[in-house]
Amino acid sequence: AQTLKIATVAPEGSLWMTEMRASAERAEQATEGRVKIKFYPGGVMGNDATVLRKIKLGQLHGGALTGSELGGLSKNAQLYGLPFLFDDPAEIKPIRQQFDQYIRHDLNKAGYAVLSMTGVGFAYLMSSDDVGSREALEGRKIWVPQNDVIAERTFRAGGVSPIPLALPDVFTGLQTGLIDTVANTTSGAIALQWHSKMRRLLDLPLSYILGYVVIDQRAWNKISEADQQATLQAFAQGSDRIESENRRSDASALDALKQLGVQVVQPSESERDRWRTVGREVVDALIAESRLDGEVIGKLRAELQRRRQG
């Protein structure tokens, strides 16, 4: 029997962890106990860099990581997370059917098998103050995760001051006014208890958040092909359930926010265009620095264009 030890920062009890545990159980049953999966949730194994080092050393066999955390391994891991790429949440599904393969291929080249790719949802800008126009945004102070260069460049180019803070400081930062704007999914904002300060939500999808479960190929290849397929299937099922549940909880979180007095702001067409241009320029600069894969992004943009016209 092969035991796969997987680390994640997702806390125990979260939807993600609950479904992952259920998927692991299905995989274990389907392989008659030949594949066992053990989780280390809550970030107890360290941050992304440390988890990747421990995978190389063989203490861990895999990690549940976000696209930006895998950015160092694969230029395409952040593909769907690029800023202001999508206009409408409905665009993601057909695009993923076409483009997931590029990401898998990239990660395989880096030595990882992809156990699952799960959509967490779209992040939106939420603020305690007005975010509808360029002038209003100039006064805002938006939180960006430390080291998230893409977010930092995007907001700077868009005229908002990015304030890098560690996650634990965000809660108190919102209370004291050190920051007044965050980007997250609606259910994420509620889970982190950021919602009590929020008054506005900008109705413009900022980026699509994707969670990966990657497994070291050295461990993965010890599993027979049939068992690999059974395991992949168990996790694909879990992935589907998380995605549909996330869509539901994002919708109900939005309702909850509205009931708390959060106003959904529709940006003007020119404001939408401005953000899209900002996003495109930042991505182009990163392609020029060869931090992102220009070829795949070019294909993705062309496909989106085709669908929007057609």
């Binding site: 960006v144 430390q146 080291n147 998230d148 260069v149 930092e152 990015p162 304030i163 890098p164 560690a166």
Partner: peptide, 14 residues
């Protein structure tokens, strides 16, 4: 820098 100029260096914390 942040208090006076609303500016921050993204790599400083790392």
């Amino acid at each position: 820098r942040r208090a006076l100029f609303n500016e921050a260096w993204i790599h400083a914390d790392g």
